[in-house]
Structures are given as structure tokens and as C-alpha cells.
Design a protein around this nucleic acid. Structure first.
Length: 428
RNA sequence: GUGGGCGUAGCUCAGUUGGUUAGAGCACCGGAUUGUGGCUUCGGAGGUCGGGGGUUCGAGACCCCUCGCUCACCCCA
């Protein structure tokens, strides 16, 4: 029970039973990204620590208390990436992919992210995201495209009851103006703020709007809304974004209090939320970050992206439609030294001749009875029996494990043909 | 980081107010059937009762500490 070594807190193993669902989800997401002509990039898991503090904002929770940061042997401060956008922006600048319409303008990535948080359902210290980022396009079309792309993924995965919330954070200037107004408002009502929001007052006023504390609901609803302070440019951008969603038939609600926790967002932000996963209901979040590329040392380049949490999506999928794993077509039962060795050679030959064939050899010996038991449990359609008699006559016995068909004998030379036939008849 | 619940076999869980050698089901291995799975049936193996300390004649049970899981806050995907 008490193993000597355990996985690190908040980091879990995905076991074979779950992997089938993971692969299914990943395949659907990849296919949809391809359908929208996004190209995959593979990025390092480790970056210079400053990349994240600079991009995400050192007052954010993610940077100030959730990063895995360490000095490497040269003393350089490195971090395990807590999210994907900062590294992608770095790669895009470093490799000169920022030019509009160039090869790097629509990208996606997949991989583990790390945050030192207290684990709970749907929240892990090592978790996997698939994200997409678009560079070089200021218009709302790409914002809407990303949202539609996600909505398509949920449809293809058969997920229902996923709510889309959208908002706009306007331009940097507008937001600065608004922040000052909001600060005045909450400072004037500071006595009504709960402890968390007192802290937010110092760090990031906008986050007060996000509070779940029902006692503060009135105060928040009375607060000035950013939407009333929008500059015309942002207002148009957001309006067109919403219109495109309408055109595409993607349902959404505007949530003026949707703020998001990373500093780099501007204009469009969105979240897909489910009620089926407990407190960690956001399965995908994203938005526009028009200033980040320039802030990180690249040419001024508007950008927008999202990332989705695979653990949460996989859990959602498996609650609804469990995906069964891959089972062998044939399980090879062999007994006796001569037969086992003949079976080994035969299996390799069949894999040469029939690349589609999934064939499992019995391992660990055992009686025919025991081997048949394993054959049954493997889920294989057929048991292929090779004993001394079969070897002498250069044939195998094929027994269907899922039907009452009579056991048949097939010459070893004719096996490939027979298996092809069975496949054509959908009996494998 | 804060708070609640829970840790007994690979898994799901019993275990009386503290009392002898800690149990069941499923799964696993073997036999009944010396070359045939699923359904039976019989047997076997498998536990430092999460870890450490304490109270006691005696602790799986009570107390303290610790680790882990879990749910919520917070944060976010």
C-alpha cells in the first residue's frame, strides 16, 4: 500500500483505460485544428523565468505564487511553463514568424503545464493543454474563428450544456481609464469589501468584479461597467465579434464581469464553462492580447488565442461516452517449447504481411485453460491455437471467442489470406 | 495559502463501548476438465490497517504530529 515512491502531489498517471478517451479527444481536436489550417508547433516545457513574469504579470497569482522556478547549474532562473502563450510568443518572435500571412500566423500546441496550486477536482499541478494562437490580424474575424473552432470541437465530442461567456476588456488606454474609475468606486465603498477583495483593491481592481461572494453581489452590480466606457474602436470590434458568432449560430452570453486572470489580455475575452465538473468549470479560455508581442520585444503584432484543459475535457467526455480501448484481433495460444517458438516466428511473419493486424502473443506460459482465459479477457475476436499437433501439420486452430462458430483449422501458409477474409467480413 | 471529509488486500468496502490469529466481494494464481475461455465449484496467494510518536496490560479503533487523497474557498484550464 505505502509504496516507497509516489507521484508528486497533484501530478497523476493516466492509465491504459483512460488513454483511449485521451487519444480520442486529442484526435478530434487535432482534426478540427487541421480543418481550420492551424499548424502545430512544439515548444519547450522550460523557459527563462523572466519570460513569464514579464508576459503574464508579476502581480498575478500564477506568477506570484504558482510557478515552479529553479536555478539551473549555471545559476540561471528557469521556470516550468505555467501556460502556453508566453512561450509561443517567444518562439514566434525568435523565429521571425510574426509576419501576417506567413507560415506562423495560425499555430497550435499541446503539452503539460505546471502550477503549484492546491489540487482538487479538475485542477492538477501538472495538467495538459491544447492551445491555439493567431498572429497578425487585428480584426474580430479571427477571434470569432477561434470560438467557432472550439464550439465545433464540443459538438464533435458530443458535449452538451457548455456555456460560452464573452466580454471585452477594451484597449489598454480605455482599460486604464476604467480602472481608475473602478478604483474610486471600490475605495469609496471599501468598508463593504470582503478580505479577498481588499487585497484585489491593491493588486488588480478588475478582479473584484469576478468575486463569487454573494454578500458583495449588490456592490458589484452597482459598480461602473467597462462596457459604458468603451472607445468606439473596441465597441465596434466587440460588436462585430458578436455578430459573427450570431452568423455562425454559436450561442453566447455577454458577461461584463468576465475579467480573466492574466494581465496580457485586451479586447475580446471568452470562456467555455460547464456545470458538470464542480468548482473548476472552465474547460477553455482565451482572448486577444494585442500588446504582448511588442511588449516581449517583437514587432507590434495583434494576436489572439485560447487554451483548453484536457483533463477537464477528458473527464467531461468520459462522464458521457466512455471510449473503449483498442483490443487485439487475435490472441495466440501456444504450449510446448517447439510450438511457442513456432508461434513467435509466425506472429512476426503475420505482422510483416498484415500491418493492420493486432495480434497478441500469450506471455508467461500457463495451461491451455489459463491461456484461453487470458485470450477471452484480452477482448480478441479469435484465439489462434498452436500446439505440437499444429506444428507437425503446419497449421493453426482458429477459435472464435465471440461467436459459436466451429473451431477451424487453417494451414499456416493460408493464414494471411484467411485473416484478410475475416477482416473483409468484419468478423475480426 | 485557508477550511471540511477520508486513508484497512491490486480495486470496492466491513471490522461492535479498545480485547486472542484483521474479514468479504471483485480481480489474480491453481485444481475439478493432464489441448479450449465465458457459467459453476473447490483451494491458494496477497496486509508494516498511509507513516511516526503517545495513552493503555492490550490500539485498525483513542490522542498528537506528518504524508497522501478528496471537496470547497482562492485561482484558473
Amino acid at each position: 500500500m505505502s509504496a516507497k515512491f509516489q507521484s508528486v502531489r497533484g501530478m497523476r498517471d493516466v492509465l491504459p483505460d483512460e488513454v483511449a478517451t485521451w487519444q480520442h479527444v486529442e484526435q478530434v481536436v487535432r482534426d478540427v485544428l487541421s480543418a481550420y489550417a492551424y499548424k502545430e508547433v512544439r515548444l519547450p516545457v522550460v523557459e527563462v523565468a523572466e519570460l513569464f513574469t514579464h508576459a503574464i504579470g508579476d502581480a498575478t497569482d500564477v506568477v506570484s505564487k504558482e510557478m515552479y522556478t529553479f536555478a539551473d547549474r549555471s545559476g540561471e532562473q528557469l521556470s516550468l511553463r505555467p501556460e502556453g502563450t508566453a512561450g509561443c510568443v517567444r518562439a514566434v518572435i525568435q523565429n521571425g514568424l510574426v509576419h501576417r500571412g506567413g507560415p506562423g500566423h495560425k499555430l497550435w500546441y499541446q503539452g503539460p503545464m505546471f502550477r503549484y496550486e492546491k489540487p482538487q477536482r479538475g485542477r492538477y499541478r501538472c495538467f495538459n493543454q491544447i492551445g491555439a494562437e493567431v498572429y497578425g490580424f487585428p480584426g474580430p474575424g479571427v477571434d470569432a474563428e477561434l470560438v467557432c473552432l472550439c464550439a465545433r470541437i464540443w459538438r464533435l465530442l458530443g458535449l452538451e450544456g457548455i456555456r460560452l461567456e464573452v466580454n471585452t476588456l477594451a484597449t489598454r488606454d480605455t482599460r486604464d481609464t476604467y480602472r481608475a474609475v473602478l478604483l474610486d468606486y471600490f475605495q469609496a465603498n471599501a468598508d463593504q469589501l470582503d478580505a479577498d477583495s481588499q487585497v484585489r483593491l491593491e493588486k488588480n481592481v478588475l478582479r473584484i468584479l469576478d468575486s463569487k461572494n454573494p454578500e458583495m453581489r449588490d456592490l458589484i452590480e452597482q459598480a461602473p461597467a467597462l462596457i459604458d466606457y468603451l472607445d468606439t474602436e473596441s465597441e465596434q470590434h466587440f460588436g462585430q465579434f458578436c455578430e459573427l458568432l450570431d452568423t455562425a449560430g454559436v450561442a453566447y452570453t455577454v458577461n461584463p464581469r468576465l475579467v480573466r486572470g492574466l494581465d496580457y489580455y485586451s479586447r475580446t475575452v471568452f470562456e467555455f464553462i460547464t456545470e458538470s465538473l464542480g468548482a473548476q468549470g472552465t474547460i477553455c479560455g482565451g482572448g486577444r492580447y494585442d500588446y504582448l508581442v511588442e511588449q516581449q520585444g517583437g514587432p507590434p503584432t495583434p494576436a489572439v488565442g485560447f487554451s483548453m484543459g484536457l483533463e477537464r475535457i477528458v473527464e467531461l467526455v468520459s462522464l458521457k461516452t466512455p471510449v473503449s480501448g483498442v483490443q487485439p484481433h487475435v490472441y495466440v495460444v501456444a504450449r510446448g517449447e517447439v510450438a511457442v517458438s513456432a508461434a513467435f516466428g509466425l506472429c512476426e511473419r503475420l505482422r510483416d504481411e498484415l500491418p493492420w493486424l493486432r495480434i497478441e502473443q500469450n506471455a508467461g506460459g500457463g495451461s491451455f485453460k489459463a491461456q484461453f482465459k487470458r485470450a477471452d479477457r484480452s477482448g480478441a475476436s479469435f484465439a489462434m491455437v498452436i500446439g505440437e499437433g499444429e506444428v507437425q501439420q503446419q497449421l493453426v486452430s482458429l477459435k472464435s471467442l465471440r461467436t459459436d462458430d466451429e473451431q477451424a483449422q487453417v494451414a499456416m501458409d493460408a493464414l494471411s489470406k484467411e485473416l484478410n477474409t475475416l477482416r473483409a467480413q468484419s468478423r475480426l
